[in-house]
Amino acid sequence: MDGQTPPITGDWGEDTVDIGGWIIDPIKGGFVWSPAGSVFNDPNQYKYELQCHLGGGDFDTECLAVIVDCKNGPDGTEGIPVVWLKAPAGVPNPVWTFHSGPTCLFDARPEELLPRIAALIQTEFQKLPIAAGKATAQPSPHTLRGAETNFFAEADPQQFDIKILAQDVHVDAKPVQYSWNYGDGTSLGPTTTSGGSLPQDRWGEKTATSHVYTQTGDFSVVLTTHFQGTYSVNGGPPLPIPGQGQFSSAPQTVSVWRSITRNYADDCLKNPQGQGCPGASQPSR
């Protein structure tokens, strides 16, 4: 592993030498090299081994057939396929057990990749195929001019596993705010209120997300859901993604009609051609 091992430094005691080791950075996530004498709270220590390595010069031939491809690394570098092992911290000659992997190690100090991943994570977050959510109008697809039309959103938390700089990154996305474009030049939000469904006998009530249209016509309503995210690198602790990702639903058409009140002397049995009767010509909206 020439060129892949961190420089070994340490302090000599009366009978021992302290050389430091690998730890999980509690702030940035991922594995970092800890110099001798460092103090940390993680109860484990970590090391990596070549994937498929059985010890000495022996390798698992079946494993080699599906070994991780580490040839296309960041900046054109070529890495090594590894698995990470863990053991209780401070225990001499510990029994190592599997922690995570396989993954590619492109630098014996992988913590140097973390700032670069942090710089990319917001852009990559916005590229994720996050489902924006569903917008519902009540009543729909027709509503009345001058009446309250209730709108509400339904959006779910989502998870994604992606690669950034050839590292395994797990992303959790949670809907936190909502914005409404009602299609008539007015909008609402961002607001933490997603709204909610009303029973039919309460349609027309004012709600936190309802809207009154003052003109008739067809209007395209667009819901934009704002997601907050966290990410973890190579099984490390979750870290907050700065800012928010904004994802818009497909436009939903709402037809706004006018309401007209008329008094009639006859019902449809006496006057089948009266306005509002089946088969009679209807007034324009």
Rank of each mutant, 00 (worst) to 15 (best):
E124M: 06
G90F: 02
V95Y: 12
E205T: 12
R262V: 15
S249G: 13
Q177F: 12
Q275P: 15
S34R: 03
F59Q: 00
K86D: 01
A153N: 07
P190Q: 10
G276Q: 06
D172R: 07
P240K: 08
I8A: 15
G73Q: 04
T61E: 15
V212W: 01
K174G: 07
P43D: 06
V17W: 13
P283N: 04
D156P: 01
P199G: 09
A166R: 05
S210Q: 08
F125V: 09
W33R: 08
A89K: 14
A153V: 11
A147Q: 09
S259L: 13
G133V: 14
K270R: 11
G133S: 09
E148T: 04
T136H: 01
R262G: 06
P7V: 13
Q126P: 01
L239H: 07
N263T: 15
A137I: 03
F152W: 14
G195F: 11
E111C: 02
P26D: 12
G76Q: 02
T103F: 01
G20R: 02
N93W: 04
P238W: 04
T224A: 10
G37Q: 11
T143F: 02
Q45A: 09
A280K: 04
N93S: 14
D266A: 10
S281V: 15
W33D: 11
I241P: 04
T5E: 10
A118K: 04
G133F: 05
G229Q: 05
P272W: 07
N93K: 09
P74L: 06
T186W: 11
Q45F: 06
D107F: 01
T77N: 11
V66S: 13
L239G: 03
T143D: 03
Q4M: 15
L188A: 13
H170T: 14
S281N: 09
P92K: 08
Y213P: 06
G245Y: 03
L128I: 05
F152V: 07
Q4D: 00
T214D: 07
A265L: 14
R116E: 15
H142I: 12
W22A: 12
A36T: 12
A173F: 10
